[in-house]
Amino acid sequence: MIRKNVAKKIKNRFIEISELPEELLTGYSKMVLLGDKEFLIENSHGIIEYDNNKIRVNTLSGIIEVLGEKLIINEISSKELLVKGKIKNIGIENNS
């Protein structure tokens, strides 16, 4: 257990020092919001719920909920998920 913690600390230090893109190493999802019309999620783990007004996406850090109007999932691939439409609210439900 202690060893695991030490390994994690070393990893974090390494990431901090090397300034490499963190999402590639840790698997965190990176989200880019363009105004209120485009929302890009990288490293998503899948859609949980999809509706015209509500999209719930699973990621490493929890479930991300996007509320809005006329939401369209423009593209899905194993890496990225692009949501288009009028976005009103974005929230994160931590699973811990």
Binding site: S44, G46, I47, I48, E49, Y50, D51, N52, I72, I73, N74, E75, I76, S77, S78, L81
Partner: peptide
Amino acid sequence: FTEKFTNLCMRNNINIFEIKR
């Protein structure tokens, strides 16, 4: 289970565009 279906596609490297409900 359309969400399940999309997730399965995503896992298996199938690209999907312009999903509308």
